[in-house]
Amino acid sequence: MANKTDQYLIARTLNGDLQAFASLVEKYQEYVFTIVVRMLKVNEEAEEVAQDTFIKVYESLSGFKGDSKFSTWLYRIAYRKALDQIRKNKNRVQSFELIEDISEDKYQTIDNPSEAMEGQERLQRIKRCINQLNPTDAALVTFFYFEDLSIKEIASITQLTEDNVKVKLHRSRKKLFDLMVKHEVLSKNLRNHGQTI
């Protein structure tokens, strides 16, 4: 159903209807932005790259044959754009690490393990954990959890083999889990005994 709608909007866009493309942007902007921001870690930069992604999609839309889902094709472009941006902007990693260090200090000073961690603070901690993954791992986790994509689709987007995706995904989920335990988003008891807090 969603695919039919996408195909309809694509056909309308190719006939010169810019509003149809606006509908596609509205529909997928949060998914694309989430993938890109998880990889780049910087909101402003991610917004620019996400915009570039949609512009590239518009320019290449006539070349989309429909062999894969539109969303898979779109995410592939977003993933590549984000990787290109990372390559272009190598200094970004250093500045990000610096920001993370500061965040860590702040986190250590304001945090009291006995306090209940809920709401915004908890969300910030989870985000901080995701942000500590490297760009590819962050993208894989995002595809796996947020987009509910299959291993095959993730492999198609990232141009990795399915086995490679499985291994990387397993490692990144394990790493993310350990980070969440470390940041006390999830309890150690859960890790050891499989119980909730």
């Binding site: 949060e30 985000k127 969440m180 859960l190 890790r191 909730t196």
Partner: peptide, 16 residues
Amino acid sequence: KEEDRLKRAIDEVGLE
């Protein structure tokens, strides 16, 4: 169970 808790924690954040 760990997988389930991890998924729920990530789902809490939602889309950006």
